[in-house]
């Protein structure tokens, strides 16, 4: 816990979010047929921040955004040591025919994203699904999944742990890398 190294400082964090927003605007134009969905729990502060910045940059009044809980879709139910609690799913719009941008803070094994995609299927058939992640641990994938937008690409060992802190939750925007264990 004590030996974490900051790999994305507060200033770079803001720049990264801005870059991700501009990349999204390039592909989604005015977001008329797009929606942003954060995977519980790490993806929720990310989707909130990106949504807020997109509104500031584009001047739009609203872009559809929601949160998706994947607890009931996980492939490690009854197989993991520590049980996890379910979280809120809030998607008060239809995803049928939409361009969906799934968001999570850290892309690691890819299993959460797989679960999120099966969960998404229960809400309709989107036109296209893209993946945005703040941190991409690119050499640790268990499944053939890759991010369309990545804030920071990190090469790390399986033992390492990446933690994303948010101003509104932990008090500061930053990304930390712990060489070992579950910080």
């Amino acid at each position: 816990m004590s030996n974490g190294r900051v790999i994305l400082t507060k200033e770079r964090f803001a720049l990264t979010i801005d870059r991700l927003c501009h990349q999204l605007i390039e592909n989604h134009d005015d977001f008329q047929n797009s929606c942003l969905i954060g995977i519980q729990q790490g993806g929720v502060p990310l989707v909130n921040r990106i949504h807020q910045r997109l509104l500031e940059i584009t001047g739009a009044t609203s872009i559809e955004n929601g949160k998706l809980d994947i607890t009931f879709y996980r492939d490690d139910f009854r197989r993991r040591e520590k049980p996890i609690r379910a979280n809120v799913t809030e998607m008060d719009f239809l995803i049928e025919g939409k361009n969906v941008v799934l968001m999570d803070d850290v892309l690691y094994t890819g299993r959460s994203v797989q679960a999120a995609m099966s969960a998404l299927g229960d809400f309709g058939r989107p036109h296209k699904v893209e993946l945005l992640t703040l941190v991409d641990r690119r050499f640790n994938r268990d499944l053939p999944i890759k991010a369309d937008y990545a804030g920071l690409r990190v090469d790390s060992l399986d033992d390492a742990y990446v933690r994303v802190d948010w101003q509104e939750v932990e008090g500061e925007d930053q990304v930390l890398l712990f060489p070992q264990g579950n910080g």
Binding site: D69, F72, R78, A86, S118, A119, D122, F123, G124
Partner: peptide
Amino acid sequence: QLIFETADEFKEVINRPIKKVPSLRD
């Protein structure tokens, strides 16, 4: 309380167009 909070999430599930999750498939 844990049962109630979990039931809150399932109540949202059974009001979806597809009212089903794969948790207990095995």
